[in-house]
Design a protein around this nucleic acid. Structure first.
Lengths: 346, 346
DNA sequence: TTGTAAGCGTTATCAA
DNA sequence: TTGATAACGCTTACAA
């Protein structure tokens, strides 16, 4: 069933059918009703690619999740702490504007080319990139070519002018500051920090937040209290080992990700210390497991839902109305206090 | 940049460009090379909707996840235990055939209409439905209309002839049997079962599996040992309460989902019983949390990866070569023994 | 208010 | 081995 057939049945021209479908004003009520009746009767739906070819936007957005650069299949699941909530929230928002979302995980198998092609062949009219550290150059190239996109959590590129784009970023510094300050307010003085990957901006910024809170409390910044992980659970385990090996004064640890916090907890339990009685732990991200593990994990929540809606909303605006210049949006963080942190007894 | 311009630069016709792009045989090497050179130079990529309109398949598959019929936002996250792994695995497999995956969560906001439209307007050439209990009628209608689709875990429709379709199902009975038998082999005799939603086939089949193992071991089936939940954590909690209220003989519980098992564990801990020392628990699904919760949960793993690859593979086959009649595939289950189950001391 | 006709960028058919 | 031309199904000036 196509517009030609509908036109014939309704005894009008194809353009009239099109006008009815697209809700144009200059159609008499009578004709409109007649056409709508036939359309309903035969269940006619305009073909997407034909509309698209004729100039209509295809209302399709790509959401690209770059998988962390590890081989293990396990890690993909970890990354999915982000994937599913983000994709779902993005869908919710896209729906309101009748957009569809095409999700793509970019990893070793599925290289960046796959994403690029979707822009080139006009399958999508815009894209959102998450965890894109490894593909920054390619993304810049896309922006330079005029493709419309949103980058999540890549604040560091804020001022590099490469063409119009949108960045949505969580307030990493703020979050880390809140986490550390929470421990300070609980009376902790010997507070260690397990950093994330320092090549990633979030890792770097969270370290800054930690330092800010420490300095503000008049405490010294001890290099032996700062150790670098890579956001994974195992690195959290190893970092805790390093921190606690020759130190029995540490009473609080702020880890730059929940996964690392969970790894650290594993080590701490192994050596027979109790959480939170001996050591308080604060994580970052508020992944689902954080509330299920025992003790449940005090952490910093970033509203992925907010991120996703802001990203989708501004991308659609970018696509439909264009923007004058690059935009930079931030999403707030929130401290979620659970069982893994405890007020220190003096 | 379009094929016309490429044709001009390469001093050939548009049809020649098309033939090169589509790797047709009847083109001289010389022409081919020349055209390829220009294509590379100008980064030409054929426009998807134009190809599609001209008759090429658009190589797009829809993956539809029906959200469980509850209002809470929380539940959507639970559902995502399925969502993310399935979507990722599906992508992996689709990649090999250069297909893209369009994911859509169907829930109260996003009704089935959204999915239907994607078929009608030919955005997708086939679809995979997961958790589709609530939309069976609509799915049948799609099948009847000749749309190509795969249904996951809806074994019950195996024999209802409604048109060509593919079902991929996990072996629910087998899995539940394994879970129950595991408890029996550990010496348990008083084994209760928390059923899932009995309106869903998986809930029903797993009860059958439980019964089969019980009967096979020569044990009686006690109705007071069987209680019905609805796959959610809270229903697991309530079911455990019901089961254990007036009973101190039960030593083993098989719950039809990990979420219910987790809820049951919560109740058991609350009344001061120990897991697995006093009561052994076995779940079903092997969601991620199962290995993180303490004690970690013994459960039945269904390889979502297998499900996804079989689904995608057979759907692509259906799309590209058609199938003679409906197909029914099953995916095996595996018992994963962790800490929540223990051999009973006699 | 309606219809005619051109055009979107490809592929497929058929003739050269 | 190549090219001219029609066709895909729709939208959109523009003409009526």
């Amino acid at each position: 069933m196509n517009s030609k057939e509908i036109a014939k049945m309704a005894r009008v021209s194809r353009s009239t059918v099109s006008k009815v479908v697209n809700d144009y004003a200059n159609i008499s009520d009578k004709t409109r009703e007649k056409v709508i009746e036939i359309i309903k009767k035969y269940g006619y739906v305009p073909q997407a690619s034909a509309r698209n070819l004729a100039g209509k936007s295809n209302k399709m957005i790509g959401v690209f999740i770059t998988d962390v650069n590890h081989d293990s299949k396990e890690l993909r699941v970890i990354e999915s702490d982000y994937f599913s909530p983000f994709a779902t929230a993005a869908m919710d928002y896209a729906d309101k504007f009748e957009y569809n979302i095409l999700t793509l995980v970019i990893d070793k198998n599925r290289k960046f080319d796959k994403a690029r092609k979707l822009f080139y062949n006009k399958t999508i009219s815009g894209g959102i990139f998450i965890g894109a550290e490894n593909n920054v150059q390619e993304i810049f190239e896309l922006i330079r070519s005029g493709y419309k996109l949103v980058i999540i959590d890549q604040e560091r590129y804020k001022d590099r002018v490469v063409g119009k784009h949108i960045i949505v970023n969580s307030k990493n510094l703020e979050g880390a500051y809140k986490a550390t300050k929470h421990l300070i307010e609980y009376g902790h003085r010997e507070i260690a920090h397990i950093c994330g990957d320092m090549n990633k901006f979030s890792g770097f910024k969270r370290l800054e937040g930690y330092k800010k809170a420490i300095v503000e409390a008049g405490l010294p910044i001890r290099t032996e209290y700062i150790t670098e992980g890579d956001f994974t659970e195992d690195s959290g385990y190893e970092s805790a080992k390093k921190l606690l090996k020759n130190n029995n004064k540490i009473t609080g640890i702020f880890a730059s990700s929940d996964n690392m916090a969970i790894g650290a907890m594993r080590f701490i339990k192994e050596i027979g210390l109790r959480i939170p009685d001996d050591i308080s732990i604060v994580g970052y991200d508020d992944i689902k497991i954080a509330s299920y593990i025992s003790p449940s994990l005090t952490t910093i929540r970033v509203s992925i839902l907010d991120m996703a809606s802001i990203a989708v909303k501004s991308l659609i605006n970018f696509i439909e109305k264009d923007i004058k210049s690059s935009r930079y949006n931030t999403v707030s963080t929130e401290l979620v206090i659970r069982q893994s942190s405890k007020r220190i007894k003096e």
